[in-house]
Amino acid sequence: MQKIEAIIQPSKLDAVKDALVEAGISGITIFEARGHGRQKGHTEFYRGREYAVDLLPKVKLELVVSDEMKDKAVDAIISVARTGRIGDGKIFVSRVDEAIRIRNDERGEIAL
């Protein structure tokens, strides 16, 4: 099993969810996140007042999939979240040892 964590633009969330469902993946967890990568902070002016903008709103997705679904899921995310501009986000993939469904104690891929 593989855990996929993706940091994406908030505006791409609906499209990414649709793409994942189309790829056969339905269970995801979504977090509201803030951060910056190579996009650095800057200052904005609003009607004479100054506001610092150093963290940008992002959405973080977490999903755990079977090994064979990993590439499909990653491709689905990239296909819709990519604009080619700075700030499109990142995807991290890591191995998961166990999954347990709390309701009935099912274990392994069946619990996904």
Binding site: P10, E32, A33, R34, E44, F45, Y46, R47, Y51, V53, P57
Partner: peptide
């Protein structure tokens, strides 16, 4: 959430400008 409040503020500022 703070996240939504911040997004709302940014949109407000950008629109005002």
């Amino acid at each position: 959430t703070p996240w939504k409040a911040e997004s709302l503020w940014r949109l407000y500022m950008a629109t005002a400008n």
